[in-house]
């Protein structure tokens, strides 16, 4: 490649000259640094935005879930309002079983929530009380259940209490939805 010794010497001295100059004094180094730092800053900003988006999506999911729960609680409340004075034992038992199952399914994920715990415990107690009241009017002879309004008198107070608890929970869940909305509003100014 290099046949002339002088040419080799010149090339080596040129290389030595280039190497001997500190790298931070070179423009290319600073261009690279600026590009790298800008890249890091954009990565951090993108990460922060992604985290905010994830949080917003989670909260939106929670809001939708809570709204579904409030709809279900409203349905249960409407069902409780339909307690007929001449309801027979079998119908009352089926109604209470369905209401109890639905309410327990709705409230169980929130039983450790400090805002709801007390109301959930009360609702559980009232449901248990309603079952006891219904058992107290279980017909001795199922084929001969002719005494009017007996079942209604036994359970109407418990059903009213269940409805009160459901109304309390409805209000608290609605408040939670409002709070989620407030938390996600960016402060002005």
């Amino acid at each position: 490649m290099f046949s002339d010794p002088q040419q080799i010497e010149d090339t080596v001295s040129l290389i030595l000259r280039v190497i001997s100059k500190p790298f931070w004094q070179k423009l290319e180094f600073w261009i690279t640094i600026v590009i790298a730092v800008t890249g890091v800053i954009f990565s951090i900003l993108a990460f922060a935005e992604a985290r905010k988006a994830k949080r917003a999506a989670t909260e939106a999911g929670r809001t939708v879930k809570i709204q579904t729960i409030t709809i279900e609680l409203t349905e249960v409340s409407q069902k409780l309002d339909k307690l007929r004075p001449n309801i027979p034992f079998n119908e009352a038992r089926d109604m209470l079983t369905e209401i109890s199952r639905r309410l327990r399914r709705i409230i169980s994920p929130f039983q450790a929530d400090p805002d709801l715990k007390c109301h959930i415990d009360t609702l559980r107690e009232v449901l248990t009380g309603a079952k006891e009241s219904l058992n107290s009017v279980r017909p001795t002879d199922p084929a001969n259940e002719e005494t009017p309004y007996t079942v209604y008198y036994a359970i109407e107070s418990d059903f009213a209490s269940i409805n009160d608890c459901v109304a309390d929970l409805l209000g608290l869940f609605e408040k939670k939805t409002i709070n989620i909305g407030d938390d996600n509003v960016a402060p002005k100014g």
Binding site: C118, H119, T122, E125, V126, G129, S133, S136, V137, T147, T150, Y153, A154, S157, D158, S161
Partner: peptide, 13 residues
């Protein structure tokens, strides 16, 4: 004649 015993529980927090 019908006689029924009813127990009512009220709960307050």
């Amino acid at each position: 004649i019908i006689l029924q015993q009813v127990q009512r529980s009220t709960r307050r927090i």
